[in-house]
């Protein structure tokens, strides 16, 4: 903890809120915290307090960075401010990252104006610049901020790791800094959360499978064990392999890409386990639906899907899902009688 040193530089400062000095080093607890968050352990409650923070010893010429109060967002920012004297204003985004919160509007013009006032940042600086992360732009109206606070919003890079280069480049973002990517690594890092989230509904599916297998099959338990394997394989394909293979799967629709992946999966299983291409028709009809749905669900984590597109996908795939599952039920009943 340190004092907001703007008070010594500007004696008439009205700033009574002491800025909190933060380290630019990640502690072991920060690393564990973000690891836990990736695995969806306490992810919804990983927050820092909104307010004014500093790295190093900022003065009235130092830049002001805006962040959200999702701890991982804040940590990534401060880690990339190593060796830089800067002010950080953390907005109250209810613990949601910058991009999501900008979409919701909680990382927004009103909240920014509120925090500019609350932190009295204008008393700390002689310039009129604040640096808003590029992905905060959907929530912030730069001209509105200017009108209400007199401060100029400068949109920084998408990735905090480009901040040093951005500062060297006289606060200009290059085309590359402005562009959102979705690289293999960026997709891979999301898969634990996807997988853990999909497990949430697994007990329900497993109970259903168990009941069906016990009621219908002669060797109910044996069939159930196979079904368990196939089920978790489907989750693995839908939540881990799908994100990895996303750009390589044909067609643009996530649901369709996922369905194809599921079909490949179930066909391979049939060939390996059951020694036939079609194997169990019920598996053929239902497993690709599950991978398709998991894939469709991944639109929420992707960086390039639009609301209109996601709605269109649902409109088309929902009836097809229903039809496919219904056919599966019919096959089950035919086998039973």
């Amino acid at each position: 903890m340190g004092n907001c040193n703007c008070q010594s530089k500007k004696p008439n400062s009205v700033n009574k809120n002491n800025a909190v000095k933060v380290s630019t080093e990640m502690s072991i607890m920060d690393v564990i915290g973000s690891w836990k968050s990736r695995w969806n352990i306490g992810r919804m409650n990983y927050k820092v307090n909104p307010g004014l923070y500093i790295t190093g010893e900022p003065d009235s010429d130092s830049e002001v960075f805006i962040s959200s109060n999702y701890k991982m967002s804040f940590d990534i920012l401060r880690k990339n401010l190593k060796g830089i004297n800067a002010w950080i204003i953390v907005l109250d985004t209810a613990g949601i990252n910058v991009w999501c919160a900008a979409g919701k509007g909680t990382f927004g013009t009103d909240e920014l104006i509120r925090m500019i006032d609350k932190t009295s940042i204008k008393d700390c600086i002689d310039h009129k610049r604040i640096i808003v992360p590029h992905l905060g732009a959907p929530g912030i109206s730069a001209h509105e901020v200017k009108k209400q606070s007199g401060l100029n919003v400068i949109y920084g890079p998408v990735k905090a790791s480009d901040i040093k280069e951005f500062l060297k480049n006289n606060l200009k973002t290059t085309d590359k800094m402005k562009k959102v990517t979705f690289t293999l690594f960026e997709r891979l890092i999301l898969t634990p959360t996807e997988f853990v989230l999909s497990l949430k509904y697994s007990p329900l599916f497993l109970i259903l499978l168990f009941l069906i297998d016990i009621i219908i099959g002669k060797n109910g338990l044996e069939v159930f064990y196979k079904d368990i394997l196939i089920f978790f394989g489907t989750l693995f394909f839908g939540t881990i392999l799908f994100p990895v293979l996303l750009p390589f799967l044909p067609f643009r629709s996530f649901a369709l890409k996922g369905w194809i992946l599921g079909l490949i999966y179930i066909t391979s299983i049939n060939l390996i386990v059951f020694n036939s291409v079609h194997g169990n028709y019920v598996h053929m009809l239902t497993a690709p639906i599950l991978t398709s749905f998991l894939a469709y669900n991944f639109t929420g984590s992707s960086t390039y899907t639009s609301l209109s597109g996601v709605e269109k996908e649902l409109k088309i795939s929902l009836p097809l899902y229903g039809l496919s599952i219904l056919s599966g039920v019919v096959v089950l009943l035919i086998n039973f009688f």
Binding site: S37, R38, R43, M44, Y46, Y70, M72, S73, G95, I96, N97, V98, W99, C100, G103, K104, L135, F182, E186, I189, L190, T193, F254, Y296, N297, F298, T299, G300, S301, S302, T303, Y304, T305, S306, L307, G309, V310, E311, E313, L314
Partner: peptide, 28 residues
């Protein structure tokens, strides 16, 4: 938001699709 769970939730509750998650940089 181009987010399936938001769209589904919106359809189920009859409200505007709104993101309910807080992932790192890529969610919703």
């Amino acid at each position: 938001v181009g987010c399936a769970s938001a769209v589904i939730k919106g359809k189920l509750t009859g409200s505007e699709p709104s993101c309910g998650c807080s992932d790192t940089s890529n969610c919703c």
